[in-house]
Design a protein around this nucleic acid. Structure first.
Lengths: 210, 210
DNA sequence: TTGTGTATATTCACTACCCGGTATACATTG
DNA sequence: CAATGTATACCGGGTAGTGAATATACACAA
């Protein structure tokens, strides 16, 4: 593929990203995206086979950067694993205070396409969430969490996606602080370096029994 | 309003409910609703001022029954408050195993209307979720939960709406069992009748200090 | 260097259709 | 008659997607 083709495709994806995020994929027309990108609709259809293809490509393009952002927030946070994961939620709360914040594009897309089971964008959305959950699972395992780390990672995902949904509905970012508290409570007592904590001692004891 | 007007209006609402739930509000046309209800579009517009009005009326009509269902699931469950709230999640998991299950209509509507901030349906959706959270809060308070019951109710709501979102995305009801586990862990250690539990003893001790 | 073929990239104008909502006339009932 | 419903037929506007022509860039031959 030629170099000069990249910018145009990128510009279309960027324009689509902004508009999709702001109004939702069904509310935005192909014409609006083309206009925002400064190209003709016909050019858009040269780079993408259909609107559905464009939606899928948009989510695929967001996968990596989104994951990287979460990892950066985790890396930059201080404290044990529980506190650092909670840090992600606090960063999210900060983002959600911006009026333009519109929740999670992957989640929203999966809702908007609920009646199209095989849609490629749904596949991309699921893959993204799965990758995030797997990363959380590995982080918890590395932190030496007792018991079933994959179950704990799923609980964190429930709180994360719950935050996206609830904050979008109520437009109240404080729910993300609430989620952060829950995350700490669920993880902290399972960490090996929990000090003088009855529950943690009991957990370690249980594990020794097996 | 006349008696004979009620069935027609009801039939329209019921048809709209089924179609909205199955495909989403933006994917369903007014014509489709009218046809499903067995009336002409003009009749529909006699009973409802606009499609937006119909959407809002639909959510308002679902508010009470939905709440009642959750309360019934709670009442019919056995065990302490934590177990009975977890019972709601297990009932939800059972529902979600049905292929026709499509998540929470209130949540989905709030996503589909994200670009229309003042939409009456959004008001209805928020009111419903608030009512549910308030009910949870009162249930927790009656169970004698230690500490901040409203914060705990918010955590349960995060897990509930997180379940709706995640299960809809992955089409995997087992996440609701995971949520049930998290609910039990978050609530149980705060219950006054927790036996020989170090964490619970600590919680009671903290409260005595204040 | 100049001409020519070819793949890439883009534009304008267009179709066929579906959408929410309505004007108007007709029916039923008290 | 008058109020409440219902039916047909229609409107303006927006939708995803396309046909045909054109512009650009570059390889290669004369």
């Amino acid at each position: 593929m030629r170099d000069s083709s990249q910018p145009t495709r990128e510009r279309i994806l960027q324009a689509a990203g902004k508009l999709f995020h702001h109004d939702g994929i069904r509310a935005i027309s192909v014409d609006a995206i083309a206009e925002k990108a400064g190209v003709t609709k016909r050019t858009l259809y040269y780079h993408f086979r259909s609107k559905d293809d464009l939606i899928a490509a948009h989510l695929q393009a967001r996968d990596e950067p989104n994951l990287a952002l979460f990892k950066r927030w985790f890396d930059e946070a201080e404290g044990n694993a529980a506190e650092r994961i909670a840090g992600i939620f606090r960063h999210l709360a900060q983002s959600a205070r911006n009026a333009r914040w519109k929740g999670c594009g992957f989640l929203r897309t999966s809702v908007e396409l609920v009646n199209l089971p095989g849609h490629p964008a749904l596949v991309a959305a699921r893959a993204h969430k799965k990758r995030l959950e797997d990363w959380l699972c590995s982080v918890l395992a590395e932190a030496g969490v007792n018991g079933d780390t994959s179950s704990l990672a799923r609980q964190v995902m429930l709180l994360l996606d719950g935050s996206f949904a609830v904050v979008l509905l109520h437009r109240d970012p404080s729910y993300m602080e609430t989620a952060a508290e829950a995350v700490v409570r669920l993880i902290a007592e399972r960490l090996p370096d929990a000090k003088a904590n009855g529950a943690a001692r009991k957990a370690r004891h249980d594990r020794r029994d097996q």
